[in-house]
């Protein structure tokens, strides 16, 4: 029996190696949230990010990015301010006074550059050249002058990982600005969509979608995108609303970390999307 097994093992060594390695790979999947793996990742990522950062610096050596950065920062501020003004137009003046909304344009913005990207239809991630040394913390939103890009999910001393909206692990509380319908925005590998929206909710093509007040991780009223044609399910009671993001994720290069945490206490509680790997 032993001889027979040995013979099989020798003849089919390649399959044995394959199965063992695949098991090891699968064993890593649930460890993604663990601190040990995070430490290894921190070391490996930190070392490699310097390489890509250097490449980035060489590529930008001849371009004057200061002025572009300043204008983009101004644009980002205007985008936030513009959203707030839209809100004001939609809300009644008295209610606005009572609620005394925070002036979101006053959010401190930290300019950052994308140093590398993971081109994947389901794992949309960006690596930016700002980290803990710049005051970046896990949970901070990342925007461009056009709108929301994503959320900082990992920070290292000099770099951070941003999970973009185009990541199937990213779920975001949003609302349709015109009718205040709130839902959860997700990514299915091709489209951004708000799932299970009752067909009684009237959604027009082109309605603006913004981050919601009920969200726990992002400040409200950050532009996300516009609605596309609603899709009805077979039952006809619920449907999906597809959303076209304002940000072109394929070309995003310069962005801003909004140095604000929606609720610092919640940061420790590890809510929904941050633990969604």
């Amino acid at each position: 029996m032993r001889k027979y097994l040995k013979k099989i093992l020798e003849e089919r060594r390649q399959y044995f190696v394959l199965v063992v390695l695949l098991f090891i790979s699968l064993a890593f999947l649930p460890l993604n949230k663990g601190e040990k793996l995070r430490n290894i990742k921190r070391y490996a990522f930190g070392t490699f990010a310097y390489l890509t950062y250097l490449e980035n610096q060489i590529a930008e050596f001849f371009t004057n990015t200061k002025e572009i950065e300043r204008l983009q920062k101004q644009n980002a501020h205007l985008m936030l301010e513009n959203n707030l003004l839209r809100e004001y137009a939609l809300e009644n003046r008295e209610l606005r006074k009572m609620l005394s909304f925070q002036d979101s344009s006053a959010y401190p913005l930290l300019p950052a550059k994308v140093i590398s990207k993971l081109i994947s239809s389901i794992q949309g991630n960006l690596i930016i050249d700002r980290g803990e040394n710049d005051g970046v913390k896990t949970g901070m939103p990342v925007i461009t002058p056009e709108g929301l890009v994503g959320l900082v999910v990992e920070t290292f001393s000099e770099f951070s990982i941003v999970r973009t909206l185009q990541n199937s692990n990213f779920k975001l509380a949003v609302e349709i600005q015109r009718n205040r319908f709130a839902g959860i925005l997700g990514w299915d590998g091709i489209n951004l969509f708000i799932k299970n929206v009752p067909t009684s909710v009237i959604v027009k093509e082109g309605d603006r979608v913004i981050t919601s007040d009920i969200g726990t991780l992002l400040p409200p009223q950050i532009s996300v995108g516009v609605t596309m044609k609603p899709e009805k399910t077979v039952s006809g009671l619920l449907g999906n609303i597809f959303v076209k993001p304002f940000v072109d994720f394929s070309s995003v290069k310069n962005l801003f970390v909004v140095k604000v945490l929606q609720n610092p206490k919640l940061n420790d509680v590890k809510l929904n999307l941050l633990s969604g790997e």
Binding site: Q14, V17, I24, S25, L29, A44, F48, L118, Q123, I161
Partner: peptide, 24 residues
Amino acid sequence: TLIGFLIGLIFDFVSGGVVGSGMF
């Protein structure tokens, strides 16, 4: 197969993706 495993391991750690998916 072994080299593929190593490539996936390094790729997962430096890309910011889900560790294990690239390895597999």
